[in-house]
Design a protein around this nucleic acid. Structure first.
Lengths: 215, 215
DNA sequence: TCAGGTTCGTGATAGCCTCTAACTGGAATG
DNA sequence: CATTCCAGTTAGAGGCTATCACGAACCTGA
């Protein structure tokens, strides 16, 4: 939600309105889902008439893209803050869960069902890369035990493009990947409400998975 | 997609049109996503004019609910067939992955971002329960090694409502749950395209997770 | 101070969408 | 043959995205 600082009052007004629009957008997403997000409805709730919002966003897609960008940025910051605060693997996982539970729709906007044909702009995929880089940092501080190289690790040694310049060995790449996929499995099912009828405590399942991940 | 057998030609015609509508709906979901599904567009592609479809479905929601029901039914059948064909845990996991990859949008319609406020009718949650029951069957044939009871297993022993009459012990409930969450994490990230820029082989990651699950 | 361009917000409009309502014409039924 | 039923039609209300032309407010520079 952070908007760059600006000078002229006009630009300050502009960014102020933009963030106000985004706030209303998040509220609407929380109550009716991203697919029901309506520029028209936001405008009316802000006391303006429909097309006014097109001065601030080129269209519905640009608004949603901006929300996705903010969400990624917020998550990348949360993970980074955890790591730099000295969090180990388990505590980083908990930080991610807290971030997800704090606003389920924000998480689902990032990792939920994508619109076919939508391609995130490069700066967003870069933030996604930041998150993976931080996970590699976290796991590098707690590297897995020595073991024979697996087929997957051989593949990861070849395709380590996504790790950027990070010097993590394939075993750490593997660890970061399953950290991501297992957490995502737990969080997305929990946030989407697939556990509700089951009545067990999702946090215990989460903690059990975190413990397993460290072993 | 299975429609009950009927007698009169009128009813046969009716169910025939219903399945034709659903086929067009799946095509539209595959190309533009579920949120862009349009009764109007389907009607036009079938050579009829808009409101005609309301003879067959009470509205857009009912059509989507029907698609969700068919998707769950298909998945439950796929898992059941695998189990009854003698599949072990690993082979059942592969059957689920094959089912998901065969039609990514069908999987995402079930397990993707839910619409806030949407509640699936009881018969659909029953099918979801069928799937869990089959997973319990699969794991009961390959029970995990003995170990001290964990906090999660104690919780599962108390809240085993979702397992119905199934006699599986808490350790098996735990196993079935993480089978589900880990597979879902892998599949939903793969199907949503979050691995595309990474270039590693998702199947190797999947197999590594399956192997880990059996250990 | 005041003339200029710039930017904001408006109403009108086109073209989608869902869904309701009244109507027509053909098929099934007695 | 007459009646009932039902598929499909058009018309229309009300929502949406998005574009356009216009008036009004604002900022800037002479």
């Amino acid at each position: 939600m952070a908007e760059t600082e600006t000078n002229t009052p006009r630009e300050r007004y502009r960014t102020q309105v933009r963030t106000e629009i985004k706030q209303h957008a998040w509220e609407q997403i929380a109550t009716a889902g991203a697919s029901a997000l309506s520029l028209n409805a936001i405008a009316k709730r802000m006391g303006m008439s429909g097309p006014a919002l097109y001065r601030y966003f080129a269209g519905r897609d640009e608004l949603i893209t901006e929300l996705i960008r903010d969400a990624y940025r917020s998550m990348a910051d949360a993970v980074r803050v955890a790591f730099e605060g000295g969090a180990d693997v388990a505590e980083t996982a908990r930080a991610m869960r807290r971030w997800a539970l704090a606003d389920p729709h924000r998480y689902l906007l990032i990792y939920g069902t994508p619109v076919p044909g939508y391609h995130a702009p490069d700066d967003i995929t870069a933030i996604s890369g930041e998150i993976m880089a931080t996970l590699l940092d976290v796991w590098s501080a707690q590297p897995p035990a020595e073991h024979a190289t697996t087929a997957l690790e051989a593949d990861l040694a070849r395709h380590r493009h996504w790790a950027g310049e990070h010097p993590a060995p394939p075993a750490v790449l593997h660890r970061a990947l399953i950290f991501w996929t297992r957490l995502h499995g737990l969080l997305s099912l929990e946030l989407a409400g697939h556990f509700v009828g089951m009545e067990f405590d999702p946090e215990l399942l989460f903690e059990a998975e975190v413990a397993d991940l460290r072993a």
